[in-house]
Amino acid sequence: MIRVQQAPFDTGEEQRRLLAGRTDIGAVVSFTGLVRDFNERPEVTALSLEHYPGMTEAALGEIVCGAEARWPLQGVRVIHRVGRLAPGDPIVLVVVASAHRRAAFEACDFIMDYLKTRAPFWKKEHSTTGDYWVAERESDYRDAGRWESDNDDTP
């Protein structure tokens, strides 16, 4: 299940819903991304997240399909917020359920790496010294590249 929304989300509630009525799930891993109060500049006061409606949902769907093709997963939830957020606010949630922990850990990591490099979201940070658009990071591409190089080793 994939959602793009302005409203905050409740990690516990989302995980409970994913697991409701299931007894075949042996492991659930969740990742929550938060707004930091420092990034390219200190004293970030707010963040505006923009996305490309339609393409965003399609890109996230493709990333989840990619994860499901690589690991035996029993449930995935991805929620990404848009609009104006304050430091400490949750931005993104990825919950992955599987029979075994390794698959759940790796699939969650994979989804976040691909989300950061392929899903059409853009962050604008508002700081005490002005507003600026966040620049892409080389390290994010290196992280996503890991999943391409060790393609053959993954079950």
């Binding site: 950061k116 899903a119 979201f121 962050k123 892409e136």
Partner: peptide
């Protein structure tokens, strides 16, 4: 057709 900068979500 959409033109945009590299993505920075997550």
């Amino acid at each position: 057709v959409a033109f945009f900068p590299p993505v920075t979500g997550g």
